[in-house]
Structure formats: structure tokens, C-alpha cells
Amino acid sequence: MSKPTPVTADSTVVRIEHLNKWYGDYHALKDISLTVSAGERIVVCGPSGSGKSTLIRCINQLEKHQRGTIEVLGETLDDNIKRLERIRRSVGMCFQHFNLFPHLTVLENCTLPQTANLHAPQAEAIERALTLLDKVQMRDHANKYPGQLSGGQQQRIAIARALCMRPRVMLFDEPTSALDPEMIAEVLEVMVDLAQEGMTMICVTHEMGFAKKVADRVVFMDGGEVIEHAPPARFFQFPESSRTRRFLDQILDHGVSA
């Protein structure tokens, strides 16, 4: 099960081509194409309902798309559930609401996926879990239950849990949106560290500071379309579309000028 997923020669990790998705009659994603290479950090932003979460949830097929192709680590996503499970083990994901397993301790949250899905020996799984919990500064809380911890702490554990699977790419779905303001920094810090270590990352976030600091490219979506797609320097200083400008005005001012 844990055999390495084949890597394509051009080191493309995710290749999305002409992706379309509908919820009933509602066209949620309109003909989206995006390629992410190993080591790249992509920030996806846009107003709510723009389809940005749907887009990254298609990458590990938490949402099914109807048209277009998604290729992850050289394998095309289709109805083959076994292959999908294998791909998912190489694609880490962090959710807005952390989604830790409340009936397991912090440590068990990190070891169970390894032992159950990677067939890692228990001792090895514990060692890796503790190393990664240390990295997110949560090792001291290893034997607590998620319910005993703050949102920021839970999100850091969720990142460690995802990293335990040795993912080739990390997806972040608004990881700081459900956090109290004083906890956002601690989570972003972990994410910046991760980016600087060379992890391939696709982040849906409104944290423009994070985008400026680590992103290689920023993707701006609105109404299910990619409106703008540029390196952060150009994206923030010379946005091409008026919709981008309006969004940036709103989000950077936090509505103070309005």
C-alpha cells in the first residue's frame, strides 16, 4: 500500500484541466485549469461562494467533478476508489474546522491514520507523531483529547496529523477562518515553516500577509472562474481585473474605509 506514487518527469504534482462542476443546475466551477509543480505554494482567494473551496476539495475528490480532468501525482482521478484512497494518502488536507477525531487522544489522532492506512508499525507511528507534534509545539498535549484544546492548538494538531502521512502536497481549506484572532498567528507560523521547508501547498485563505510572504502564485476566483492568476508582487500591486481590485480593497481595508 505504501509504495511510492509515481512522479511525472516534469515534477507536476497537480494538473487540473478544463475542470467543471455543477451543484444541480448551479455551475460552481467553470472551466478551470491549474498546474502545480513540486515545491510550489499556491494561494487561492476570492469572495465567499466563488468556488475556491470546491476547487481544492476536488483535488482529493471530497467533491466529485463532472467534466475535465484532474491529475494528482501523475494519476488521473476517476471512479477507481482504491486508487483514490492511495492518492489521498499522499495528499494532506487541513479543514476550516480542524475535524480532529474527538474520541481519540492527540497522539492517537496522529498514529491511527499511519497504522491503519500506511501499515506503519505502532512504535514507528508514535515516533513520527511525536516528532511532528514537537514541530507544531503540541508534544506536551499528546495525551489530551481534542475537546480540551483551543482552536489554534487543534488546527496545529490537524496539520501534524496530515504531515504524519508523509504527504507530497498539502491542501489548506481556510485553515484560519474559524479561529479567534489571537490564534491565527500560531497556525500561520506553522504554515510558513512548512512552506519554507519546500512543501508543495495549495491554500485557500484570506490571509493576504501569508500570500505575500510565501506564495509563488496567487489565484483569484470569483463566480466559479479564475479571474486572475499571478505572482504575488504583480497580483497585489497591478491587479488586472476590476473585480480583483474591488476584492483587494475590501479585504485589505477590512471595510474600514466603507
Binding site: 482529493n60 471530497l62 484512497e85 489521498r88 495528499v91 488536507m93 479543514f95 475535524n99 477525531f101 492506512n117
Partner: peptide, 18 residues
């Protein structure tokens, strides 16, 4: 059960029965 629990399990590569 919150939907997030199913999604987190799926995202970590758990099979249906696991």
C-alpha cells in the same frame, strides 16, 4: 455525526470500512 468527520477520514485515505 458532523460531515467533517467523514471528510477527515476520507482525506486521510481511510477506506469505507476502516
Amino acid at each position: 455525526m458532523p460531515k467533517g468527520q467523514y471528510e477527515a477520514a476520507a482525506a486521510l485515505g481511510f477506506s469505507y470500512w476502516k
